[in-house]
C-alpha cells in the first residue's frame, strides 16, 4: 500500500456480470490508490516512486492495483497482459472506456469505474 505521505485519490469501483465473485462477492467498493503510478505501465505496483515520480495513475495502473490489493481469487479471470481480460467491459463515469483512451485514461479523485464481465452464461 502507499506510504502515508504519498498523495492519493479515492475512487468508486463497481463489479458486475459475475466479476464481483472475484472481489469478496461485493459489487461496490471505495478504494484509495496512489495518485502516481510507477513508470512504465505494468511495473510492480508495490514500488512507488517517492516525491511524485512515475506517471499519473491511469486505469491500467488501477487494474494492476486491484489485482494486487482487492482481488481474492482467480486473477486470470480479471487481468491478462496488463489489461482486463477480453470480454470485460469497462465504464468510466458511465462512459465506455473505449471513448476515454482505455487503460491510458488518467484517473481523477471521485471517478467511478465499473467492470462488467460479459463472459457468464446468458
Amino acid at each position: 500500500m502507499s506510504a502515508t505521505s504519498s498523495p492519493a485519490i479515492s475512487l468508486k469501483v463497481e463489479f458486475g456480470g459475475g466479476l464481483e465473485l472475484l472481489f469478496s462477492n461485493e459489487r461496490s467498493h471505495t478504494v484509495t490508490i496512489p495518485a502516481r503510478a510507477p513508470s512504465p505501465a505494468g511495473a510492480d505496483t508495490d514500488v512507488h516512486p517517492p516525491g511524485g515520480g512515475g506517471r499519473p495513475a491511469d486505469i491500467a495502473f488501477l487494474i494492476a492495483w486491484l489485482r494486487a490489493n482487492l482481488l481474492q481469487e482467480r486473477a486470470e479471470l480479471f487481468e491478462e497482459n496488463g489489461t482486463v481480460r477480453p470480454g470485460i467491459l469497462v465504464l468510466v463515469n458511465d462512459t465506455d472506456w473505449e471513448l476515454e483512451g482505455e487503460g491510458e485514461y488518467v484517473l481523477k479523485d471521485g471517478d467511478e469505474i465499473v467492470f462488467i464481465s460479459t463472459l457468464h452464461g446468458g
Partner: peptide
C-alpha cells in the same frame, strides 16, 4: 446487450453454472 442491460438497469443474474 450487456451495455443495454447496464444503462437500462435491468435486473439479471450472472453466475457460472
Amino acid at each position: 446487450i450487456v451495455m443495454y442491460a447496464y444503462f437500462k438497469k435491468l435486473d439479471y443474474f450472472s453466475t457460472e453454472c
